[in-house]
Design a binder for these strands. Structure first.
Lengths: 235, 235
DNA sequence: CGCGCCCTTGACCAGACTCAATATTAGTGG
DNA sequence: CCACTAATATTGAGTCTGGTCAAGGGCGCG
C-alpha cells in the first residue's frame, strides 16, 4: 500500500508531533524548489551505480526498482506506488535501477532541503519505516513461500484493505475485484523470484480453480478474493 | 556492515548538515532519558504483533529479527550489529520478533524524544537508508542466488571491507580470515531461505574445496577469502 | 560416562527450472 | 478493417537443485 494511503488509513496519532507533517510536506512540494518530470513505460529515472544526487517522490503511476547480477539475473526489489519516496541512498551511489512500469509523474527533490527540515525528516522517516515493513514481508515471501503462495500474495497486494489483519471481508454479495497488473509476466517473475513459466503456470492454475479470470493479459478479475487470500500462506 | 562503521568508513560529507549528527546522538544517549538493558542468547526484546511502544539501539552483540508464518515457517529478516536501530515501526505493532543471538546490550529509546529533534531524525534516516540497501541485497540473495552463492555471500558479509566495490584484496601473503558465526545452522538456514541440511552440505562442500576450515562449529577459518568472494554470484 | 543437542551425511522425492514448441496479444501498415 | 509481424504468454517434457526423511556422529555439560 502506498505511504499516503496508509497515513490516511491508520491511527498513529499518538505518535504524531504537534506540527502537521503533511502540511510541511505539502508546503515544500508546493514551493519553487521542486521540479516535476513525466515518464513513459520503461523510462529509467536512474541506473544502479549512478551517483546519487537527487531523490524523488512518485506522484502518479508505478515504478519498479531492480538490481542486476553480472550474469544478467534480475531481482525487482520494490514496486512503488504514488506517495512513495525513492532514490534516497545511504551510500554515494544508487544501489538499484528505477524504471517506470506505466506512465508516471515524479517530483525531483533536493536532499539538502529535506535534511534541514524537521517536518520533512519526519515524513521521510515514516516513509522509510513503512518500506522496511514491506521489505520484511517480501523477504518472507522470497525465502519461505511456494510459487503458488507468492503469486497469491502478489495478487492480494494489489487489493487495498483486503488481506490485512482487520480485513473487512467481502463488501457485498460477490467477492470480486478487478485489478490491473501493469507488469509483464517477466517483471512479475523477477519480483517474486520465479521464472516466467512458473508464474504463468500458477496463474493458469488459479484460473482452473475458478478463483480468477484473465480479462486481457495484464488485467485480472478476481472472482473469489477470500479464496486467493487463503493460499497466501498467511492464514 | 553496522551503521556506525559505515559512517566512519565512507565520505558522505557533502551531505552532512552543519550540525554534527553524531554529537547530537551522543548527547541524547548520554542523557537521563535512555535506559540500558543486557541480554543473554535467545532473550527476546519484543514479539511480532506486540504493541510498538519503544525503539532500541544495539550497543554490543548481535540480534536477529524474524517473522513466522502460521504453519511455523520462519524467515530471519535482519541480522543486526552494534549501532543498528530496531523496533522503529511505521504501524502500531512490531512486524517481527527481536531475539538476541549472543550476549548483547541495548539502549531503550523513546520515540517521542527522537521525533522532535532534527539531529536525531537525521541519524534515524541515515540508519534506515542503510538498512534499505542491505534489504535490497538480501532480496537479490533470496530471490535469485543458488544455495552455494547464498552461503558464500553470507560468509563474505562477516568480513569487514572485503567483497566491496573498493575491496583492497588480500592484506598480506595469506588471504585468511577467522570469523565467528554466532548463529546455529538452523538460524543461518532461516536467514538464507534454505534448510539446515542444505546449509550444512554447502559448508561441507566449501571445506572439500579447501576454501574454509571449520574450527569449532560456529567458528570458521576462511583460507581463501577471494575464493569465497568468487562464488557469491557478484563477480 | 551418558545424555541431549546440534550437525552431518545419505537416499529419495518433488517443486521449480530449462528448453522447446505453440498460442495469443498488441502493434503496424496497407 | 484486416493481414502481417513482433512481442509476450502458455503449455509440455525432461532435468536438476534443493527439500524431506532417516540414520549416525560429534561435542559440551552435568
Amino acid at each position: 500500500m502506498a505511504y499516503r494511503e496508509r497515513v490516511a488509513a491508520d491511527g498513529l496519532n499518538d505518535h504524531r508531533p504537534d506540527m502537521d507533517i503533511d502540511q510541511v510536506w505539502a508546503d515544500y512540494l508546493g514551493s519553487e524548489k521542486t521540479k516535476r518530470q513525466t515518464l513513459k513505460p520503461h523510462d529509467v529515472v536512474f541506473y544502479e551505480s549512478d551517483s546519487a544526487n537527487r531523490l524523488y517522490e512518485l506522484v502518479s503511476g508505478t515504478i519498479m526498482l531492480y538490481k542486476l547480477l553480472p550474469d544478467g539475473r534480475r531481482q525487482v526489489v520494490e514496486v512503488l506506488n504514488s506517495g512513495d519516496l525513492f532514490g534516497l541512498q545511504y551510500g554515494e551511489y544508487y544501489d538499484c535501477t528505477a524504471e517506470a512500469l506505466t506512465n508516471a509523474e515524479i517530483r525531483v527533490l533536493n536532499r539538502r532541503d529535506i535534511e534541514v527540515s524537521l517536518g520533512l525528516q519526519q515524513h521521510v522517516g515514516r516513509c522509510l519505516s513503512a518500506k522496511m515493513e514491506s521489505m520484511h514481508d517480501h523477504a518472507m515471501l522470497l525465502g519461505r513461500k511456494s510459487a503458488m503462495e507468492r503469486v497469491a500474495s502478489f495478487i492480494m497486494r494489489m487489493i487495498p484493505d483486503r488481506g490485512t489483519l482487520d480485513c473487512p471481508g467481502p463488501a457485498g454479495e460477490r467477492d470480486e475485484k478487478e485489478i490491473e497488473l501493469s507488469m509483464t509476466r517477466q517483471e512479475i517473475a523477477d519480483y517474486l523470484g520465479l521464472t516466467i513459466e512458473t508464474v504463468s503456470r500458477s496463474i493458469s492454475e488459479l484460473k482452473r480453480r475458478g478463483l480468477i479470470k484473465i480479462e486481457k493479459q495484464d488485467c485480472i478479475l478476481i472472482t473469489r478474493v477470500c479464496g486467493i487470500c487463503q493460499i497466501t500462506g498467511m492464514h
